[in-house]
Design a protein around this nucleic acid. Sequence first.
DNA 1: GTCTATATGACGATAGAC
DNA 2: GTCTATCGTCATATAGAC
Lengths: 194, 194
Amino acid sequence: MNNSKKKERQERILDAALKLFTERGYFNTTVNDIQFASKMSVGSLYNYFENKESIAVTLYSNLENCLYEALCEIEQQNVSMHDCCHEAVRHIFENTERTPSAMQYLLYTKHREFMPVEKTAFASLPFLKMKTWVEQGQAMGEIRAMDSNVAMNAIFGSAIRMVFLRIDGILEDPLTDYLEECWQCSWRGVSTDE
Amino acid sequence: MNNSKKKERQERILDAALKLFTERGYFNTTVNDIQFASKMSVGSLYNYFENKESIAVTLYSNLENCLYEALCEIEQQNVSMHDCCHEAVRHIFENTERTPSAMQYLLYTKHREFMPVEKTAFASLPFLKMKTWVEQGQAMGEIRAMDSNVAMNAIFGSAIRMVFLRIDGILEDPLTDYLEECWQCSWRGVSTDE
DNA sequence: GTCTATATGACGATAGAC
DNA sequence: GTCTATCGTCATATAGAC
């Protein structure tokens, strides 16, 4: 079959699933809902994906890769670990505004409950990348010496909680409005500068 | 019927449900599982609770009240907002070690998916109480002037992420080992002291 | 490859005996 | 109040026509 058409139909399923999973949750979304939202029959859907779980897994894997690549690019364009981390937070904030469902699914959702295979979010590639930054920053003396998990959370924890607040509809203004204020608190907490 | 026996059986159901909900998630737990784990029949279970959701709601409400009361006590025994917040984090860390399921259900779970009525966690009594502390701390000049949601997350965000890390099994040592290091980062970020 | 119609099984909840 | 047995519903997944 036409390969690009195949791709297009898969995308349509994934888009519909992402929307539904984030709006109502995985368990409150039926295969029929996805089928209906993607304007496709159940039969077709099962032609493209083995089952409902496999849709969720593909979705997660795609979004995870996407974030990982963004982090790699940030890494290439910045030298100090301060800048890398800062740009990572900016990227996450901007993308939460641009594609809220994607960020919600990636950061907010409890995947383990419906993807038994999947490792915890803290063992995902993007998180590991960010952790190496923190450890490098500590080795280079930019970031105070302390347990690297603590440092990691001190730098990114409050930012991620901001994403949660935004997703839950508590923050009315776009996340990017809070970026600098939020970042300065985080960095002040771990920086070796007085 | 003997009122204390009634209470005792309800507790047994709630305990079993909490254990299962946190281990497998709400949707992966069947009423039969709860019935079996609480060594009770389905009939009895439905005698004590209207339905499965009502078990989840009662559980959440109990734990929320419990945390709220602990915060009220902390508030009474400390004067500075620094000390209140610090003790709150200590309480959360200690209780995550003491009763991990309770803290997991309270802080980590996405309640909205199975309790449509429930407000978001950020609108719960404990969170609102902590927010008033932060705002008071800002009014009194202890905490830097900034958006109160940002300040809130700067103070508690990384601590809550630490709880997540611990629940996910990433941290091997008890949370209390990380308390001071974690707190110092948070407080340095928002404090008005140089 | 795509569709409709249907099989299969599980879950929440109830009925009714004791 | 407590139990066992069962009902009704609905979701996932498949079968089979086109």
